[in-house]
Design a binder for these strands. Structure first.
Lengths: 248, 248
DNA sequence: GTCTATAACACGATAGAC
DNA sequence: GTCTATCGTGTTATAGAC
């Protein structure tokens, strides 16, 4: 909630409480209770008190394991990334069509997100603030972000996609950014089962792929350079390193 | 903050307290105090108690005039729209270049936003939830949205922009959506004085305008139809009418 | 009917004892 | 690692003043 009250004291504990197996278990119990409450009442209505009570722990204890209510969502997100990787390998083996590969990747992700739709709408919200730890652009999310980009790179590589070689290195990140935009649309999409998002994906790919083909034309050099600059500009949203604030 | 607690009781009072001039004045005082506090401490740190104290009124009174803390931001936004309209008329008289017209419109808006940058970052946040009253897609914002779209329409009309006539009617809204995307980027833009946003605007226009030219080619029919469908899909985010919830 | 104030509520988050 | 007690916040209920 309070977007501008950052938790700088706790320096984002890298692997909190991986120590004892008891801790692991407690964390798991709390997370499970949280997801249950989220599913039942929705993210907004499920209070930390509810979650703690249902998990059989105190509120303070829940905050020992999770820095904030939002962080509980992240957990689910991280886990879904593993799924996607396996899935993508299979798909790449099955087809060389770039469109098919990318669509499958995206559709599968949307399916996963849909199971806990309201949760991810909240996560999208956090994404708007690039220094927020849960933003896809934050330094804390670097690893997750790079994994996802690499996954797209796998889908591009060895596919039938026709595109200028000068542009090729920039494609994974451009497509990752595109994928973020799609998720943003999805979180706003009011159509039944987010059918519109799926259509949008298909449609924009159908529009983009021929345009990629144009980049092979001999006169496209200037155009391509502009696309690369576009890539650089968009990438500037990414916060690679933890911004070194004045040390206390 | 609590994105999912909607205020359905108070049915969005159309013109609260426009009656007496005293009310007008009190509202103005509160708004001024609010902006002052926002500027000094930032939106997140400025509390309603601060604002009320500084304005010399009670918290309850502030809530009499503003439905929520966020609504105070909206006020500034609405006012900036008036500015833009005048500005646009002048620019349209000065040049026929579509690029110049649109850039001027956008740059001017960015200048205005920059004065209260943090405020609008918060507003952008609200925008992510399309049923939120402050979202640019909400039913409540219909009038503001239509004004802004019409403004862009004025910039297109009589300009030197080359584009298929089948697409032309859809341009204002497409460009309005584009403008939203730009504002989104702006709210994330960490570069000094948001220089990157300005460059992005120029660059993407330079990329788009030749593409618009392509829509005039005889074989572009299919392509154009797809763009129109794209327009329709994107427009589905707009909530035209207040969703009729079960009356109590 | 129009405006204002006080007090309280609910929730996210934290401090500090054990 | 866990709990209790408490804080700070947005927001609301409600009573009363003009």
């Amino acid at each position: 909630m309070n977007m501008f009250k950052f938790r700088v004291q706790k320096p984002m504990p890298p692997e909190i409480a991986q120590k004892t197996s008891k801790a692991q278990k407690t964390r798991e119990i709390i997370l499970k209770a949280a997801l249950e409450q989220f599913g039942k009442k929705g993210y907004g209505r499920a209070t930390m008190r509810d979650i703690a009570r249902e998990a059989g722990v105190s509120v303070g204890n829940a905050y020992y394991y999770f820095q904030s209510k939002e962080e509980m969502i992240l957990e689910v997100f991280v886990r879904s990334q593993r799924d996607a990787e396996i899935r993508n390998q299979e798909t790449c083996r099955r087809t060389r069509s770039f469109k098919a590969r990318f669509l499958d990747l995206q559709f599968h992700r949307l399916d996963l997100l849909s199971e806990q739709r309201e949760l991810f709408v909240v996560l999208t919200q956090a994404g708007i603030h690039p220094d927020h730890p849960l933003s896809p652009f934050s330094a804390e999310m670097a690893s997750l972000r790079n994994d996802a980009t690499a996954l797209i790179g796998d889908a591009v590589e060895g596919s039938d996609l026709k595109v200028s070689s000068s542009l090729r290195p920039y494609l994974p990140r451009l497509l990752w950014l595109f994928n973020l935009a799609i998720i943003l649309f999805w979180s706003l999409d009011g159509s039944a089962e987010q059918k519109n998002t799926r259509r949008l994906l298909e449609l924009s790919l159908s529009l983009m792929i021929p345009l990629f083909g144009l980049t092979l034309l001999p006169l496209a050099g200037m155009f391509n350079r502009m696309v690369i600059e576009l890539h650089d500009l968009l990438s500037s949203m990414i916060r690679e390193k933890p911004t070194p604030t004045h040390s206390p």
